[in-house]
Simulated assay, not measured.
Amino acid sequence: MEKAIKELRLILTVDNLDELISFYRDTVGLETSKEWHEEAGNGIILDAGRASLELVDAKHAARIDQIEVGGQVSGPVRLALRVSEPVAKATDKLLAGGAISVAPPTTAPWSEVSRVKAPDGMQITLFATSTLTD
Score class of each variant (00 low, 15 high):
L94I: 12
L95G: 07
V113L: 02
G41M: 13
L126Y: 03
K6Q: 14
A58C: 13
T131G: 07
P76T: 10
P105H: 01
G29V: 12
H37R: 14
V56W: 12
N16D: 05
L95Q: 03
G97C: 08
V73S: 00
P109E: 00
Q72M: 02
K89Y: 07
K6W: 13
T13V: 13
S22F: 04
I100Q: 14
M122C: 03
T125H: 09
D134T: 14
T133F: 04
E54T: 13
W110T: 00
D15L: 12
W110C: 06
K93W: 06
L46D: 04
V14T: 01
V77H: 10
V77G: 08
P105K: 04
M1Q: 13
L55Y: 13
R9W: 14
L79S: 06
A99K: 08
A62V: 11
S33M: 12
L94Y: 14
A128K: 06
G98P: 13
K59L: 15
L132P: 00
L94H: 15
G70F: 00
T13W: 14
T107L: 02
E39I: 08
T107S: 09
M122R: 09
V28N: 00
E38R: 06
R115P: 03
I21S: 07
S22V: 05
L30P: 00
V14L: 03
R82K: 15
P104F: 06
V83L: 07
